[in-house]
Design a protein around this nucleic acid. Structure first.
Length: 145
RNA sequence: GGAGUGGACCGGGUGGUCGCUCGCCGGUUUGCCGGCGGGAGGAAAGUCCGGACUCCACAGGGCAGGGUGCUGGGUAACCCCCAGGCGGAGCGAUCCGACACCGGCGCCACAGAAAACAAACCGCCGAUGGCCCGAAAGGGCUCAGGUAAGGGUGAAACGGUGGGGUAAGAGCCCACCGCGUCUGUGGUGACACAGACGGCAGGGUAAGCGUCGCCCGGAGCAAGACCAAAUAGGAGGACGCCCGACCGCGAGGUCGGAUCGGCUGGCCCGGCCGAGGUCCUCGGGUAGGUCGCCCGAAGCCCGGGGUAACCCGGGCUCCAGAGAAAUGAUCAUCCCCGUGUCUGCGUCAAGCCGAAACGGGACAGAAUCCGGCUUAUAGGUCUUCUCCAGCG
RNA sequence: GGCGCCGUACCCAAGUGGCUAAGGGAGCAGUCUGCAAAACUGCGAUGCGGCGGUUCGAACCCGCCCGGCGCCU
């Protein structure tokens, strides 16, 4: 009813993304909030009794991308979802399990260079202790650059 | 060469890395994996028109309501397109136009004498009639009246210009122009042209009510069709059903007790209601899923018809089908534009060649599908025609 | 995706072809008061979301855009 139009992304890898609108509302209510100039992040542990889903589906964490009408027209909204979808794939092997994340991209994320956005994204996840504490995380970053 | 005008088209290219989706084939531990192929736009947008399609309603016609509006054609259809006419803008190429009808009803503020049916405020005249002066010629008054040329108001004031004419004037008369009627010719038609006649009919407004011709049933893919959990409830059926008394030969029935559930009540006693239980079948239907859902008024090429829009015939091609919604992310390089810098050329300057740096490269994302319209759009390519300047 | 409604001052709003575009609240200034409140008086629209058209004349009629809101699974 406000500007929020929920847009979640189930693909073939849809079990890695948060798609049910009730689950998104749960994360919005219970999640820890982290704000950056490029996006906002909400995170909380996965629900203990997942409705209608198998338990093993919740071993891995899931990410939902919420893009409201405020961000812009359809081209800008699609581009925001694509960029953050790639960021989600980038960190998927290293995420700590059984967490539900929610990302709210901001308009500035579309104008900033990609390397800068990626650095903010990785440091935000690290600050929330959502990345598995692998000792080679820094060399992964350099490999991806 | 400059300025303009109409039309058609493109609207980033190449490569590396990592990904998504659909179809087909193969494998598979049914989780997936591999290969091949397809994968946004000219506006996909606004949802402004028109259709296809689906459901509902419906004999036909009329009324109401809505739309449309020069003529002829095109089309499945159109508020669309093409050709022509008329009017307007422009030197021109060309562009623009809701461009039918004022007979009826309504409205036309302010200003102005007067705003729609005829009139006269300031003026002008006062020939004719009247009165006065005068012997008369004549003069005066402006009473009766005449006039619509001039002034002024307004968006708009009952043809325009010129001449004749007159007391002053006036289509009163004449010429030209405009207008109307009739006739003729050309054209399918809108209409055009020519001739004759008429002294001029009498404002605007229908994107006010209305009239006339033509068209339109309503909703919309969230239409609609199919499959169909869990829970609750509905219909039907099968099996089973404690104890005692009484009735009945019997199946069974009646009454009472106990039990369970519900209601009343803060709780107990009590009171009231219902009955137990187990299972099966059926249809309706929610979540969810499948279809609709991509071969079509389709595209390209050739030939023919038509001024054209478009149509006809033949051949070839398959060219997005997602589902909170794929069609991409990133890096390098090329191309274009801008900014200032440097090197060189240039006598200085204007400027030109080159180099590297930085910044930028539009509008915008299918959602049932087509035909249009409208709106947004950096830069670029091809081409028709016009005007101006120079040279030959 | 489809269908529909509405935009007039800071807020609520009337007006539906012609006068200076009503009215109320809020605000500002003044009167009153020792000060304030109340009361009284006065003040405000680049022209009515924007552009274009019809008309002599448009907030009003027509077309196209912009913005906001609602309904249908």
């Amino acid at each position: 009813m406000i500007e929020t139009l929920l847009m979640i992304r189930p693909l073939g890898d849809r079990r890695f993304f948060l798609r049910n609108s009730a689950e998104i509302e749960r994360v919005k209510k219970e999640g820890r909030r982290l704000q950056t100039p490029l996006f906002n992040l909400l995170a909380c542990p996965a629900a203990t009794t997942p409705s209608g889903l198998h338990a093993e589906d919740h071993r891995h964490s899931r990410i939902g991308i919420v893009v409201g009408k405020r961000l812009g027209q359809a081209v800008a909204r699609n581009r925001a979802k694509r960029i953050f979808r790639e960021l989600a794939r980038l960190v998927r092997p290293r995420l700590v399990p059984a967490r539900d994340l929610l990302v709210f991209p901001r308009r500035e994320a579309l104008t900033v260079p990609h390397a800068q956005l990626r650095d903010v994204w990785l440091s935000a996840l690290r600050r929330e202790e959502l990345l598995a504490p692998t000792e080679d995380s820094s060399c992964n970053d350099s490999r991806l650059g």
